[in-house]
Amino acid sequence: MKNNIERHVLAVLVDNEPGVLARVVGLFSGRGYNIESLTVATVSEDDSSSRINVVTSGTPMIIEQIKAQLERLVPVQEVNDLTAEGPHVEHEFILIKITNTGPERLEALRIADIFRARVVDTAVDSFVFSINGSPEKIESFLELMRNLGMVEIARSGVVAIKRGEKRIDND
């Protein structure tokens, strides 16, 4: 059972009302599902809908359960499994503060350049970089940085969208 664990990115459109996030999060904790990352923000012009991007993992049967259980929540408009529904882009945004000096400070700057990270703050002993990109790119950037000093990370979690003209609210 354990070895067919899959990672899925879900895009969940919900009514933007009090308690809706608690419903979604409570569902995951109450039924023992995983949340690898979760982001939420309103996405409609009139603020009536929010989009929850959630990265989860489980066996195919569990993934199906997660989707069906989400769909049972009254304020949930629709659940899209981007991983199952074809090509999509996944992006993450992070801010990372690194404290170091000397050659390591230079090396950090060099790597940031290679990864096209931006310097958003500079002090004598520290930089703050911002970077966005695929979760893989972010991971390798973080790994390199961790070798070069003390780091503090603020991470947005994955947001994702389908490739091509298809929108989740019209297919």
Binding site: M61, E64, Q65, A68, Q69, E71, R72
Partner: peptide, 11 residues
Amino acid sequence: IDPSSINKNVA
């Protein structure tokens, strides 16, 4: 009538 009842415990 409840899609979440399907394939929950038994495929």
